[in-house]
């Protein structure tokens, strides 16, 4: 049954990225980074907008499958 031979309950992250942002982070740099990310996101969405099926509602509704395994 539930004898775990001294397993420790793991409580927190290990080795993950530090969450602390340096207080003095240059805000310009952050803004720039954010803008770059936004542009990036726009670029992906533009690409995807191009290929997304036209009528989302109809398309999704008509995707009906028979069950399988």
């Amino acid at each position: 049954m539930a004898s775990d031979g001294g397993q420790q309950h793991r409580s927190s992250k290990r080795g993950g990225a530090s969450q602390e942002e340096p207080e003095t982070a240059v805000s310009e740099e952050l803004t720039e980074r954010k803008e770059r990310l936004d542009e990036d996101v726009d670029a992906i969405l533009d690409e995807i907008d191009d290929v997304l099926e036209e009528n989302a509602e109809d398309f999704v509704r008509s995707f009906v499958q028979k069950g399988g395994q």
Partner: peptide, 11 residues
């Protein structure tokens, strides 16, 4: 899934 109740597998 088809989001209407059906599911099929990837084993």
């Amino acid at each position: 899934v088809d989001n209407k109740g059906a599911s099929y597998g990837a084993h």
